[in-house]
Amino acid sequence: MICLFCAVLICFTFSSCQKGMDEADSSPEVNLQALWEIIDQHYCFLDYKAEEIGLDWNAIRSTYLGKLSPQMSRTQLFEVLCQMLSELRDGHVNLYSSADVGRNWSWKEDYPDNLNTEVRDEYLGTDYKIAAGLKYKILDDNIGYILYESFQNGFGEGNLDDVIYYMRLCNGLIIDVRSNSGGFLTYAERFSSRFTNEKILVGYNSHKTGPGHNDFSKPEPEYLKPSEGVRWQKNVIVLTNRACFSSTNTFVRNMKECPLVTILGDKTGGGGGMPFTSEIPIGWSVRFSACPSYDARMQQIEFGIDPDVTCSLDCKDVENGHDTLIDTARQMLSE
């Protein structure tokens, strides 16, 4: 045993340990290779996007290596790396340098907004109430209206109790999450738990178990438990557009499984993968989708969730100071 111990000591002295990259390196090829490997080994939608949009990650490596030159500036390298990441068409994929954030926001930029904030603000007026991140008001036709602009802005169970209790006599409720680009999953779960009286299956989630493109754990069911606070018992309409992303996408997924809830508007922007962060030798950090989530039928939600009722903002309505989606929702809830 002592000999073994001494052998281990000697091994420790002369052999290598678990090693990482230990030097900053600004060479274009090293950084592109490091970035490509991070995505290759950790990104969770490579196979799915190969099927859906014909993504060939191996071919992309060769293509973008060909765009490098040893003399290129940091700015030029940043542009090439961002172009490479843009091939993933994922709003959760970003490259961060001290000067810029690389992004592909085609999930919202390529589609109509279906939102005019000036018109929407007229519905709220100036006498609306604010409960943490929630703005709310009872409209003239006794329909409750909640505007939630970001899942980054938190709220507590007490806030929800107060808001729902305040609207208890309303004929219906509109939850406007248009252009809410996400934030904390906790709030998505907390909010949606007010609209079910039973534990319901809302989706599945999974994670990678290795570097292979198809190395995934068995999908675990995700249940939504009814809140112990005040729960809404009437019809609800959730307003969506293409800028509903990430946690908002998850909120819409959950709400779609709740009874008495209708999703109205445009398809959501997607963002079905929980993002992780890593970095490359030049010091830029990279964010990427790492853990996929699915809907209750095990379908991908990475490219968005279809509404129950498709509705677009009408330019003429906007000119007249009306929001087509809010008006349609009010009409549906009043019927």
């Binding site: 950790h42 969770c44 999953l185 989630n205 994670h207 990678k208 178990t209 290795g210 570097p211 190395d215 754990s217 675990e220 995700e222 929980m274 992780f276 790492a290 853990c291």
Partner: peptide, 16 residues
Amino acid sequence: PQYGQSYWEISQGNRD
């Protein structure tokens, strides 16, 4: 944690 498992998932009771 598992290779790509988030702590959020572990907090939900999903062990791997």
